[in-house]
């Protein structure tokens, strides 16, 4: 990346759950425009909470998230919904609506700009319908357009979820463990699509990952969280055995 402009500025982000667990303890990080940022750390280190705070599926209890001169952390109601339109998310469990068709699921990406009655009656705009088909082609599922979403395999469902996210025309894509429930052999197809979106469409990607191999292969930059605090920030290539032990603890061993 030749020049870095900050796309998302996270300052002292804190999240305490009602049961008193502090998932984030003052996290600060700059996310640059167009980069593929990997977030790593153990389960419970706060990386899911971090991503879910960015699109306000979780409400932060302190700090700021500056995006386009707006503090996401202090938005409410319609402001939150508007920001979610700009910041798409894909999930570990895909979170598709199983009983709806693949096409209908992808069209749900345009809900934020479609009125309630139009969307419920299925009167999406023609251009949106064309776009949906186009994105399904992009993720290689054109022939599955009218199949029910729950009839697809895990990898295919995640690709539908990517198409749904693209349908939002997002500026940022959050990916919360996108390949953790997939067969390891299928990981790369999904990761490849994410990478392609990142590079060809220029969408900033924030991706939680378990596997260090995937981090090294796909991300431009990585941050590591431990107990809600940032313990590493830099290039994935810098994560040597020493860093590894610091991030994952003394007892951890690298899986080859």
């Amino acid at each position: 990346m030749s020049e870095k402009t900050t796309h998302l500025k996270v300052k002292n982000l804190e999240k305490m759950y009602p049961n008193g667990v502090k998932a984030l303890k003052g996290l600060s990080v700059d996310v640059y425009k167009g980069e593929f940022l990997a977030v790593i750390g153990l389960s419970g280190s706060g990386k899911s909470t971090f991503l879910r705070c960015v699109n306000r599926l979780n409400d932060p209890t302190g700090g700021e998230i500056i995006f386009e001169d707006q503090d996401i952390a202090s938005l409410s109601g319609s402001g939150v919904r508007k920001i979610r339109g700009d910041i798409a998310m894909i999930f570990q469990k895909f979170n598709l609506v199983g009983r709806h068709t693949v096409l209908s699921n992808v069209l749900m990406g345009s809900l934020s700009r479609t009125g309630f009655f139009r969307s419920v009656m299925g009167f999406y705009k023609e251009e949106d319908k064309e776009k949906a088909v186009e994105y399904l082609k992009l993720v290689g599922l054109a022939e599955k357009t009218h199949v029910r979403a729950d009839e697809l395999s895990g990898g295919q469902q995640q690709r539908v979820a990517i198409a749904r996210a693209l349908m939002q025309q997002p500026k940022i894509l959050l990916a919360d463990e996108p390949v953790a429930s997939l067969d390891p052999a299928l990981c790369h197809t999904v990761m490849d699509y994410l990478k392609e979106i990142n590079k060809s469409l220029g969408i900033t990607v924030l991706c939680n990952l378990h596997h260090l191999d995937l981090v090294k292969e796909y991300s431009d930059r990585a941050i590591a969280l431990k107990d809600g605090e940032k313990v590493f920030e830099g290039s994935p290539a810098e994560i040597n055995d020493e860093w590894f032990k610091q991030i994952y603890g003394e007892e951890a061993r690298r899986v080859q």
Partner: peptide
């Protein structure tokens, strides 16, 4: 899951 998936697209409550 699906509820969150839909919510995350910026959909309204209804």
């Amino acid at each position: 899951g699906p509820v969150e998936g839909v919510k995350a697209t910026g959909a309204g409550i209804l």
